[in-house]
Computed example of a mutant assay.
Amino acid sequence: MNNTIFQAEQQLYLHLLQLSKYHPKAGEWLACLPAWLSAVKDKRRYAHAPFYASAIDRLPAVATTQIELGDKVAATLDWQMADFKKTQSLLTNLKPWRKGPFYLLGDADTSIHIDTEWRSDFKWERVRPHLDLNKKRILDVGGGSGYHGFRMLGDGAKSVVVIDPSCLFYHQFMAIKHFMGVDLPVHYIPVPLESLPCRSELFDVVFSMGVLYHRVSPFEHLEQLKGQLNQGGVLVLETLVVDGDENTVLVPEDRYAQMNNVYFLPSVPALTKWLTKAGFSDVRCVDIDVTSTDEQRATAWMDYHSLADFLDPNDDGKTVEGYPRPKRAVMIAKK
């Protein structure tokens, strides 16, 4: 087994073990952990898993002289040209990189900027002013390759658990953690929210960003999120919305912005009503933002179609299907 992956998973196990001393529900997570971690490596389920793991295994062992988690996620490395070239080639094997960006810094000739499809830092800068993450235990649902998890640590979080069922995202996270340091208290479990034990109540803050509209049952998703929060904990929910009153919900007939798994796009008043009905209090919308082609676009690290290809070429206020252009709201609520 790859040393980086083994060490990172060992740190996750020790984190849950320590947590179980004070929160018995964490013992249920420990019991599930071996199955969760073995499933993402099963090549019968994920044909590319051995290839991805091999890329992590071959990353060079280099000294990290500094890490940055404040305004960006970056590691400064003491490496030679050969290590730089090898790393660049291996990270290219993990394309497409969708959430970031990440920086591996050497000198002017040996620095890597993983310029991801999404400028996830744009979203984080909209979210972070409204939160106090200091010494908080956090769950990031659908966290992709873990970019926001690293930023949460930079904003003072005590620990972060990222969950996402993607095999590729899991290995991208491991590649970044290889250089950032396996001892950082940001962990990754490759499962969807519905695989977690119900009503664990382990976290002070739970994030769900870019997930709700992919759920067939949005209320079930809200209930599952609430079950992971301790009493008085904070939910941060970011999702696609449309304009309208508390009765306005868009249900795409087929695709939305070329995505075929989008089910419900509520208005902010409707979403407020949903959260209240699900049992949350102090519900407020702290940000609404129309997604720009500066924030989501094709790059050398994700060279497929992106937002510009999903908009009506004659009216960029609409998707190619004729629906309103993607607009996202950030909601904050308490359990």
Rank of each mutant, 00 (worst) to 15 (best):
R215P: 10
G233K: 02
D243E: 15
P34A: 03
A329V: 08
D132Y: 03
L250I: 05
T110H: 06
M209I: 11
F169L: 10
K177W: 12
V262S: 00
V251Y: 04
L91G: 03
W29V: 14
S120D: 03
G232C: 13
T110I: 03
V141K: 00
R58L: 13
H187Q: 11
G70R: 12
H214W: 11
K273H: 10
D303F: 12
V205P: 14
G149K: 04
S292A: 01
W118D: 05
K21D: 06
P101V: 03
T239Y: 01
T65L: 08
V320F: 07
K25S: 12
T293E: 10
W36N: 02
D289R: 04
E194P: 04
I138T: 03
R199I: 05
K86M: 12
D294S: 14
L212Y: 08
S195H: 10
T272W: 07
S195K: 12
V241M: 10
H187A: 06
K136V: 14
V241N: 00
I67S: 09
K123Q: 09
I112H: 02
Y46H: 15
Y52M: 15
V162Q: 04
V127L: 15
T110N: 06
T319C: 02
L59I: 08
T116P: 12
L16R: 02
A63V: 15
L196T: 05
G146L: 07
C285S: 15
